[in-house]
Amino acid sequence: MFTMTSTILRNLLKEPATRRYPASVRPSFEAARGEIRNDIHVCTFCGVCAVKCPSQCITVDRKAADWSYDPSACVQCGVCAEVCTSGSLQQARDYRKPVRKKELVVLKGATTPPKHSDPPVTG
């Protein structure tokens, strides 16, 4: 009986263990592996990221200067950002927002402006 009372009291006094999600959002941890972003103006189209990616979701076309990435096949391992030779590829802290349909992210280098709606973020 006594244990039960103390449990009840503890539960009444404590804050809930869960958050009311959309209203209160915990900021991502510093180390969190989130979305992959490429600063296409720095990218040299060397293709190292495409070779090293374990889920092979990056394709680099050196001639056409385009870099494309399939976010729905990405496993957020962070290998590509680690091996990037120019430092253009960065892994952000935040996760990608849910989407309605699968889409390739295609970034065009140098001559044409980026097609992707998000502006590329520099680290």
């Binding site: 263990a17 941890f29 510093e30 180390a31 969190a32 592996r33 496993v75 391992c77």
Partner: peptide
């Protein structure tokens, strides 16, 4: 509820809650 604490440690130290991806051949990444 208790498990969530461990997952938070995992995320704070490695970047992911469960698939921590810290191992590489020859050592660890983080």
């Amino acid at each position: 509820k208790i498990r969530e604490k461990i997952l938070d440690i995992d995320e704070a130290t490695t970047g992911n809650r469960i698939i921590v991806s810290v191992n590489v051949i020859g050592g660890v990444r983080k």
